[in-house]
Design a protein around this nucleic acid. Structure first.
Lengths: 352, 352
DNA sequence: TTGAAAGCGCTAACAC
DNA sequence: GTGTTAGCGCTTTCAA
């Protein structure tokens, strides 16, 4: 490897414009105390020479690295990629995060970290030191891991936690799970359904409880019973199948089921088919997340869309603002979630 | 933003181990000329202090940046992400590329670049200068863009071109499109099909021609006519619909169609349904790429799997080797592609 | 408002 | 085999 040197550096620009390095630096960083004429001259040189600052050099001199790190759970992410079921969580993060980063000259790097192992700390530290990112985005379950949030707080790196709402440190952003669950439940109630079952998500995730709460609230507000209409799940297809089977057996009058994610909704679809229950005519199904599989099932699933791209985009925006010295909001940012109506919901059957 | 300094630097390690900076550097980089005892002592200090080298500093001192850049077409990538149809090209790149990078302490950064615009050069240059990557992975259509390959060659950055096989500069890796097309065609021939139609991909892509060639070869070798059995397409659903309609109208005896990607295969499925042709009983369909939608159609598509992860993984491996001073192979690396059998193919109908 | 000097953490080149 | 020195490109002092 030949030693590579930068073609055009700040020195070349300074020489070309006939000013000092410092003045060029000021122009690049939009700092005050540069006369407009000077600024213009420098900018012209930058254009002319095609100068772009080196990220490494900027980081070295103690300023920003222009890198935002997005931390995902290693095991789950790799499993999703290998399964090729279309789960596009990472893509949506990139869509929202990369594009927002690009607006400000930042880059986003995806990093996989093991949650469960005892070397979380080591892995995270390695990434922090090697990359020296200006901000971190934590996705569940990392966003709820006190080991991680504690370490980040100690190191003083601004970080955003997605999918949580609590008092621990860092910026928190929540996709309005509770409101969306209410919305979805209300939609079913509006269609005339009275017995609306609910399949819970994995209890380790805060959002599982919020989704359940939304369902409960909507039921209660409509004067409908919720007792005995929920079943445990853990987001997996298998757990969904068991839960749906249990619900349908326990109360055959159930005409609608709200499942806490798409996989479990698909499982519910299959459970219904097995028992000869027609969707949506005998049973309506609504799911959470709206990953691509929701579009491809038969019938396609009515689903609560999880606004991942919008959430990550907003997180990046706030992290970059924090880099500029602005305070991070301490209140949880709530990103609205929409209900996408498809073929798995219909009016409740008459005989209810 | 407080000025962040590294907690543990090479200096601390050197002091702790009682050696010079250079010796620590040698140990980190696995260079020769360090006595085992010394090496061990240094390594112990590294462990003890939890030292991790700063990527920025390493890059600054003229060595590697430990960054591999994967260049994707901006427009198409964003469109795919927004459509949420499960296209997992980027995920598969990450799966293959990130994991291989991690093995060697590298990171992979995804970068979106406009192919068509006249500022390709500027965009690419900006990325090169800002990040100073140690290697570049070019995906179609960038991998066939002489402006890009020329620029990279000039700058001396090792780069891998995916999906191409020609004499222009850089390492080239091809997913065995021709062989896979032969394989798929032969599979249909083995099922008793004689009139096997082919829907072409966009002519701007080299792989389109290779896929067609494979089909042609297999047909010829089996003594079957290929004339009049192909139709133009451009990888879009619409073009696939038009092509399938044309093929089915032109020669109604067609009992099988090989489509150059999944979208066009789905379109073929729909075209058949519209004409009351049952798949796979009256018509067998095979597609290319095996993106997630291939699993979710009715019936699921028999498809040629595009080994993106394996290809990118291999590309990263070779780029990192190039960083170590090894020569890049000038021969195209061919990565084997498999046929995934699903429900869209069956024995040819009797009355053929 | 501008410039000069120092130094970030590391490695290449050279000396011992 | 090991240590010393210089310098990468930039920003942060501090001085003018």
């Amino acid at each position: 490897m030949a030693r590579r040197r930068q073609a055009v550096t700040i020195k070349h620009v300074a020489a070309d414009a006939g000013v000092s390095l410092q003045t060029v630096s000021r122009v690049i960083n939009g700092e005050p105390n540069v006369r407009p004429a000077m600024k213009e001259r420098v900018q012209a040189s930058i254009e002319k020479l095609g100068y772009v600052p080196s990220i490494a050099a900027r980081r070295m001199s103690g300023s920003r690295s222009y890198l935002i790190l997005a931390l995902n759970d290693r095991e789950r992410t790799i499993a999703d990629w290998q399964a090729r079921q279309g789960t596009d969580w990472v893509d949506q993060m990139l869509l929202g995060g990369m594009l927002k980063c690009a607006e400000f000259g930042y880059r986003m790097i995806i990093e996989l970290v093991d949650t469960h192992s005892d070397h979380v700390e080591r892995e995270l530290n390695a990434a922090l030191i090697a990359l020296e990112p200006d901000g971190i985005i934590l996705t569940p379950p990392h966003s709820e891991n006190p080991l991680i949030t504690g370490l980040l707080k100690k190191r003083g790196v601004p970080f955003a936690r997605i999918g949580v709402r609590d008092s621990s440190p860092g910026l928190t952003l929540e996709m309005d799970d509770e409101g969306a669950a209410r919305l979805a439940t209300q939609h079913l109630i509006d269609l005339g359904h009275r017995r609306i079952g609910f399949i819970k998500g994995a209890p380790e995730y805060q959002l599982s409880a919020r989704r359940e709460q939304g369902w409960r609230d909507a039921m209660e507000q409509a004067g409908l019973p919720a007792d005995g209409l929920s079943a445990a799940g853990d987001f997996s297809y298998e757990s969904g199948l068991a839960a749906a089977t249990e619900l349908l057996a326990r109360s055959p009058q159930t005409t609608a089921i709200l499942a806490s994610n798409d996989q479990m909704a698909i499982a519910t679809l299959d459970a219904a088919a097995e028992r000869g229950i027609a969707v949506p005519f005998d049973l309506s199904i609504v799911s959470f997340d709206n990953t691509p599989i929701a579009m491809f099932s038969q019938p396609p699933l009515t689903a609560v869309d999880q606004p991942i791209a919008a959430t990550v985009s907003r997180a990046v925006e706030l992290l970059i603002a924090a880099n500029r010295g602005e305070e991070l909001p301490t209140e949880t940012e709530v990103i609205e979630a929409r209900l996408i109506e498809r073929g798995s919901t219909a009016l409740a059957p008459d005989g209810d």
